[in-house]
Design a protein around this nucleic acid. Structure first.
Lengths: 339, 339
DNA sequence: CTGTTAGCGCCTTCAC
DNA sequence: GTGAAGGCGCTAACAG
C-alpha cells in the first residue's frame, strides 16, 4: 500500500494538516517542525495521491490533446512540442485520436470533459466546426488548433493561412512557374483551413496576373502520402498538366514527389512542388521540400498559455491567436529562371 | 457545477446506491426502477466523475506511454497503435517523453506510478536497463518495449532482434552486397537492442562466409536523420567504403540515403541501404527503403494484453513476448546480381 | 431489490 | 503554528 499523509503524520506525531502544510510549501510551519516532517516524508517516500488531491481541488493537472491521428508527422511533431512545453508547466498530457470523425470528436469531448478527466483540451478539429463546438458548450476550456471559423466562441491558435498560401504561390511565380495546381486535402475535414488556403492561392495568382485554374484543383479523402500520390497521378493525366503543385500539407507533397520520381518528371526543373507544415521528412527528402508554416514550439507555447489562462478562470472573450509563419525554400521549388 | 449521483438520486427519490447500480449495470435492479433512473440520468445528463470513481476503486483507467521522443516517426506510429488499441479496452493513454535520459525516465516513473496517476506503464526504455528498473521496484505494472535484458523482472514485448538483423544481412548478401557497414545508433541508449542487432549481423556474415568489418561500424549519438546523414558521410570518407549499409532504424537510413544522393552514389546500384522499423516515410522515399520489423498493431495489442493482465492482478513470472517480424524488400537494396 | 453507512486520501474551513 | 472535523463523488460493505 502507498504511503499516505496520515502515515507520515503518525510517524512524526503531528496532524495530517501539518504534513500537508509542509508538502504544499505553506509558510505557517516552524522551521524545526518543517525539517522533522520533511525527514519523515523522505524516509517513508511519500508521494501525494493525485486522484485524491484532484478530487478535493477539482483539478486534475491533466490536459487532453486530441488530434486526428498521432502517426501523421505533423501531429506527431505538434504533440512533441505540446508534451515538451506541458512538462515545464507541470501538466501531463493525455492523448487521443479522433480520426477526423465528428462522432469521435464529440464522444471524446464528452468523455474527457464532462467526466472531469482533464482540466482543459487542445483540439485539432478536422471534423467539428467552431459553430458546432460552441453549440456543444463544453464545460471545460477548449483551445482549437487551426483557423478560427465564424461563429465560434472558442479560443483558437493558428497562423494566417491566407497569407501563408499566398506567400507560397508568390514564391512559385517568382521561380518562374505558371500553371499552378493545388492538392487541397479532404473537403469535409479542416474545411475552413482548406478554404482559406485556396483563397490565398487565388489572391496571389491574381496579384501576379496569372489565371486561376480550377481544373487543376484536386481534392483528396485524407491527408497522407498515399492520397498525395493519387492526386499527383490525376494531375499528370490532365490534358494540360501543371508546372507546379501546391499541396496543402507536406505528406501530400511527399506522396506527389514520389509519383513524379516514378514518372521521371524532374523536380524542380520540370515541375515545382511545395507543401505546408515543415515536417522533418521534407528536410531530407529527395529533393528536399519547400514548405511553409509556423514554429511548432510557438504553437504549443501559445495554446498552453491560452488554455492555462482559461483554466485559471479567465473569462475574456475568445481570442484568435496568430503565430508567425516562415517560408522554407528548398530544392523542390528552386528553379533558376531560364536564361 | 456538474451533476452528481446524489442529484440524480434526489430527483428520482431513491438512494445513490440504486443510481450507482444502474450506472454500472448491476442486475439487482427492477426493470421499472431501472428505467426511471435511466430517464433521470439522461434528463440531467449525468456523467460519473472519474476521479472520484478512481479514488474509490484505486483504479484510474489511465495508462502511461513513455517514449524518448514522440516526434520520432517510429514512436509516433507506435503511439498511434497503442492509443487506437487502448480505445478498444476503454483505457486512456497519457503520453510523456523521456528524451532517452535515465534521470527523466526515473522521474516520470516516480511521478506517474507512485503518485497513482496511472494503472500501468508502457515504457520504451532507451536509458534504463532492465536491471536498474527492477531495482527501482516500480509499484505498478510496467511493460518494456524492446529487447529483454538479463536480470530484468519486468515483462517485455518485442521481436527477435538477432534473427531480424541476421535476415536483413542475409538479404543484402543474397543481393550481391559484400562490404557491409552498420550505423548502429547510440551506444548508451537501447544498448541491449543494438548489441543484439550487431550480433545478428555478425552471425549472418559468418554464415555467408564473409568477414566482419569492425571499422565499418559507426555509432551515433541519437537516432535521427541528421545522425544517419553524418554517419554516412563518415562511411563515405573511409579508406575502403562499404557497398551496403545496415542502419539500426529507418530514420538513420533515410538520413544516409539523402547523403548518398548528394554524393551522387547510386542506390541500390552502387550501395545498398536497409533499416529497421518500417516507418511510413520509407515506403515513399526515393528510393523506397528496405526495412524489417514487426507489425506495430501487434506490438500494441500484445503489450496492452500483458499490461491489463498485470493490472488485473496477474502474478506470473515476467514474460518476454516475441511478436513476428517481416522483411519488406524495396528499392534501396534491390540489386539484380550482375550478369 | 433497495437504503444506510462508511471511507478512498486529500485539503480546507474552523477552532485552539 | 497546529489540531480536529468535514466533505469532494463515488462505490463496497452491510442491513433490511
Amino acid at each position: 500500500m502507498a504511503v499516505t499523509l496520515r502515515d507520515v503524520a503518525a510517524q512524526v506525531g503531528v496532524s495530517p494538516r501539518t504534513v500537508s502544510n509542509v508538502v504544499n510549501g505553506f509558510h505557517h510551519v516552524s522551521p524545526a517542525m518543517r525539517s522533522r516532517v520533511q525527514a519523515a516524508l523522505d524516509d517513508l517516500g511519500y508521494r501525494p495521491n493525485l486522484m485524491a488531491r484532484g478530487l478535493r481541488q477539482g483539478r486534475t493537472g491533466l490536459i487532453g490533446f486530441l488530434v486526428p491521428e498521432l502517426s501523421m508527422a505533423y501531429f506527431a511533431e505538434l504533440a512533441h512540442a505540446v508534451v515538451e512545453h506541458a512538462q515545464l508547466l507541470d501538466l501531463t498530457v493525455l492523448v487521443d485520436e479522433t480520426k477526423g470523425q465528428l462522432a469521435r470528436e464529440v464522444e471524446l469531448l464528452d468523455l474527457l470533459a464532462r467526466a472531469g478527466r482533464v482540466d482543459g483540451i487542445v483540439l485539432s478539429n478536422l471534423g467539428l466546426g467552431g459553430r458546432t463546438l460552441t453549440r456543444l458548450r463544453p464545460p471545460l476550456p477548449v483551445v482549437l488548433l487551426g483557423e478560427r471559423t465564424a461563429g465560434s466562441a472558442l479560443d483558437d491558435v493558428g497562423f494566417d493561412n491566407h497569407a501563408a498560401s499566398a506567400a507560397l504561390v508568390a514564391h512559385l511565380v517568382e521561380q518562374g512557374y505558371r500553371r499552378i495546381a493545388v492538392i487541397a486535402g479532404a473537403r469535409t475535414a479542416a474545411f475552413a483551413t482548406s478554404t482559406l488556403r485556396l483563397r490565398g492561392c487565388r489572391a496571389a495568382l491574381r496579384s501576379a496576373g496569372l489565371p486561376w485554374l480550377p481544373e487543376l484543383v484536386v481534392r483528396t479523402d485524407h491527408w497522407g502520402r498515399a492520397e498525395g500520390a493519387a492526386a499527383m497521378r490525376t494531375l499528370l493525366g490532365a490534358p494540360d498538366p501543371p508546372d507546379a503543385v501546391v499541396a496543402f500539407n507536406d505528406s501530400l507533397a511527399l506522396g506527389a514527389l514520389r509519383v513524379l520520381h516514378e514518372a521521371r518528371v524532374a523536380v524542380p526543373a520540370q515541375i515545382g512542388v511545395v507543401g505546408f507544415d515543415d515536417i522533418e521528412d521534407g528536410r531530407y527528402s529527395v529533393p528536399t521540400l519547400t514548405t511553409i508554416g509556423p514554429d511548432k514550439a510557438d504553437i504549443a507555447r501559445r495554446c498552453l498559455e491560452v488554455l492555462t489562462g482559461r483554466i485559471a478562470g479567465s473569462v475574456e472573450p475568445a481570442r484568435a491567436v496568430h503565430v508567425p509563419f516562415r517560408l522554407h525554400t528548398r530544392e523542390s521549388s528552386h528553379r533558376r529562371p531560364s536564361p
